[in-house]
């Protein structure tokens, strides 16, 4: 019988990371898209860093930053009684940083390509910034939003290096699916590795297919010429 615990852990992690990044990502991406500040290139660089940095490098720094010897790690331990290394909460923090660009970049490009006069038209119609955000801005970058959410989710499920460095591989706590496959191969249990890998492959395929399918459908709806 296959033990599904690692998959459940992977999904739980991806779910929390996506929700948290969505809440942080919308205002941050909006800020990046609309700011004329000189620090914009700096912020964009930091945002994109996790894409090019080897996961082991990011994992190492996160391990150092989140450990009990660092101010961040100690703060979380003393305030919330939470240890951030080799624990699930630690995985969430690390994954949020690792998956950050995958949420921000699609949102930012969506915001940037949005016709600014739509926002002004909403203001002139007497609508507040919040109402404009939810009724005009977000519905009109729906495909970008969907891409951001799905890619962030999928990328978090697929991550390996950072999770291994920061979380270790504690079964039932931090051993997510991708790490479990590595462990199976190390133990020469190829059968389990095959099953896990095939499940991951199918999930990844389906997730991407759904994104592209829905985006294509949306495009048709708005461009429907009678």
């Amino acid at each position: 019988m296959i033990d599904f615990t690692p998959f459940i852990l992977s999904f739980k992690l991806a779910f929390f990371v996506t929700i948290i990044l969505l809440i942080i990502g919308i205002p941050f991406a909006w800020f990046l898209a609309s700011t004329k500040s000189k620090i914009k290139p700096l912020l964009e660089t930091i945002t994109a860093l996790p894409i090019v940095l080897p996961p082991s490098v990011l994992g190492f720094y996160l391990l150092v930053a989140l450990s009990l010897n660092s101010p961040i790690g100690r703060f979380f331990y003393e305030m919330f009684d939470v240890k951030l290394v080799f624990s699930f909460p630690g995985l969430i923090v690390a994954s949020c940083i690792y998956s950050f660009p995958f949420m921000i970049q699609p949102l930012q490009s969506g915001f940037e390509s949005l016709d600014k006069s739509l926002i002004e038209a909403s203001y002139v119609s007497g609508k507040s910034k919040i109402e404009t955000l939810f009724k005009v801005i977000i519905p009109n970058i729906k495909s970008n939003l969907l891409t951001a959410v799905i890619i962030t989710f999928a990328h978090t499920i697929g991550e390996f290096g950072v999770v291994l460095m920061v979380g270790g591989s504690i079964p039932g706590k931090t051993e997510v699916a991708s790490v479990a496959i590595y462990d199976f191969v190390e133990m020469m249990d190829y059968k389990s590795a095959h099953i896990y890998s095939a499940i991951m492959l199918v999930i990844s395929f389906l997730v991407l297919f759904v994104v592209y399918y829905i985006n294509e459908k949306n495009k048709r709806k708005f461009n429907d010429i009678y």
Partner: peptide, 20 residues
């Protein structure tokens, strides 16, 4: 007074209809 509070109708050059 912010645009929201001014009693105006504004017709934009590109119409700015909400596509959604």
């Amino acid at each position: 007074l912010p645009p929201q509070k001014r009693e105006i109708g504004f017709l934009f050059q590109n119409y700015a209809l909400f596509p959604n």
